[in-house]
Nucleic acid binder design. Structure first.
Ligand SMILES: NC(=O)c1ccc[n+]([C@@H]2O[C@H](COP(=O)([O-])OP(=O)(O)OC[C@H]3O[C@@H](n4cnc5c(N)ncnc54)[C@H](O)[C@@H]3O)[C@@H](O)[C@H]2O)c1
Ligand SMILES: NC(=O)c1ccc[n+]([C@@H]2O[C@H](COP(=O)([O-])OP(=O)(O)OC[C@H]3O[C@@H](n4cnc5c(N)ncnc54)[C@H](O)[C@@H]3O)[C@@H](O)[C@H]2O)c1
Lengths: 219, 219
DNA sequence: ATTTAATAAAGAATAATATCTTTAATAAAA
DNA sequence: TTTTATTAAAGATATTATTCTTTATTAAAT
């Protein structure tokens, strides 16, 4: 039986994306509380860390299948387990990264992904100066030599950190590799077949929100 | 007169955050179309690039103050100007960055911010090996020597790319410096006074969305 | 001229999300 | 034991965002 909330007719209810996006933040804090030896946490207190409505936290946690006790709250350790399981942070998805430049290198060496269900196992580039090196133990290969990687690898995620101009062609290549999800950091929208998952992480979207607030601050 | 939509009672209507977040993507594409010499673009065509509903694009552009002509669409060059002006990408906000590690270095050398209204003018770190160096022309200073920077600098944005453990204390410092907005990349929620703008860019939120789709793909 | 097709724009309807309200559980205090 | 305070959980409402529908505009075709 799934942990997610069930609809009356037994079909799993889709978890709202805003809920999914908040969950890792809960988890990060909860892991810290766990390390500090805190046993229980209530939704109102958890909410206060993030300036959220307490009922929202309760509902988010309910989507993951967590239950709390009145007057006590949730068991921190249990909650960490439930969220890790629900988010898939304790499984291990392997990833290829294409574009071992500044951002690519930062992602490759980033240890945080290890506790978040993703492991970058290889990088690819076209720059002779980068090929053959390794970054924190992750080898950088010549992309040209891997153009026709047989599909059906056990790699589920492809990360794009090339310039925009190359992003679509890299995406096409990854689709050919049989990759299931593409995490794109180039500031363009890539096109893929419907069965491939795409997550664009557009840095300018965040900057735009900041500038909008800054420029309207005097209102 | 503001470019933004007006309510009947003349108060400016708040632009929805989802709209703000989509706008930079429109702008990036429009700049490219402009470079390619394309004169007009219709909302339906623009929408098809992003798999959006055409009326959504029309409404988003209307928020920026753009008007199109039936049967023709929008004038690309005009639209670029309007969006740049609306987003504040043609003003110049100066920024300080604290934590000149992998991610910080990537952000510092990233040329894209130049066309997006933000210029990183200095970086700070506590690591002796980084202090005194410069990254793409941006000097890295010893944070300890700049603890009590006089407020009222012309710096409006503070970027945090330190480990989580240091993020809150850096935020407090930045607030003391008189910084107006904080762009935080550490995966924790920082607390600031209400007059300070905070934008958390939590990498795990994006990863969680990917993993959720991946793990539920078989449904 | 007149008609047609494409489109922006405005408005209505729908859907998604967040907040508020009520209820029930339960631990601690009286 | 009884009361009180706190809380989760469920449900109702409100808000926000998206999509659908209609109307009006305009360029091109007839
Ligand atoms: N640097 C940042 O902070 C940052 C932030 C957000 C988004 N981005 C985006 O991430 C991407 C990379 O940025 P960066 O600053 O790391 O740039 P970079 O130039 O340091 O890295 C790009 C890398 O891609 C490689 N490359 C180029 N064409 C390629 C191809 N066809 N196949 C394989 N590899 C190829 C280059 O050799 C280089 O190593 C850009 O699209 C940028 O807009 C960067
Ligand atoms: N690397 C990534 O791809 C990535 C992605 C998303 C978020 N993040 C987050 O960004 C932050 C930095 O990640 P990173 O991979 O660049 O780490 P890093 O270790 O390379 O860089 C951190 C830098 O902060 C400096 N620092 C430490 N304490 C400091 C202090 N008190 N004051 C000033 N400087 C201090 C360190 O000397 C170092 O230069 C982390 O919070 C990480 O979770 C990283």
């Amino acid at each position: 039986m799934e942990k997610s909330l069930m609809h009356k007719d037994k079909k799993p209810v889709a978890v709202p994306e805003p809920t999914i996006r908040r969950m890792p933040a809960y988890l990060t804090l909860l892991r810290q509380l766990k390390d500090e030896g805190q046993e229980f946490i209530s939704a109102p207190r958890l909410a206060s860390f993030f300036n959220l409505d307490p009922t929202q936290v309760v509902k988010d946690l309910a989507y993951a299948g967590a239950a709390g006790r009145p007057k006590v709250g949730y068991v921190v350790e249990k909650l960490v387990e439930i969220l890790e399981e629900f988010l898939g942070f304790n499984r291990k998805h392997e990833a290829f990264l294409v574009g071992a430049g500044f951002l690519g290198s930062a992602l490759i060496q980033y240890q945080g992904f290890r506790e978040a269900g993703m492991k970058i196992v290889a990088a690819f580039d076209t720059d002779k100066k980068k090929i053959g090196k390794d970054i924190s133990g992750v080898p950088v290969f010549d992309l040209a030599k891997f153009r026709d990687l047989a599909g059906r690898l056990h790699i589920s995620i492809g990360i794009i950190t090339t310039p925009s101009s190359a992003a679509q062609q890299i995406a096409d290549l990854m689709v050919g590799w049989g990759i299931k999800a593409i995490w794109n950091f180039a500031p363009i929208s890539i096109k893929v077949p419907p069965h491939v998952i795409v997550q664009d992480t557009h840095i300018y979207a965040n900057l735009a929100v900041i500038l909008n607030k800054l420029n309207n601050a005097g209102r």
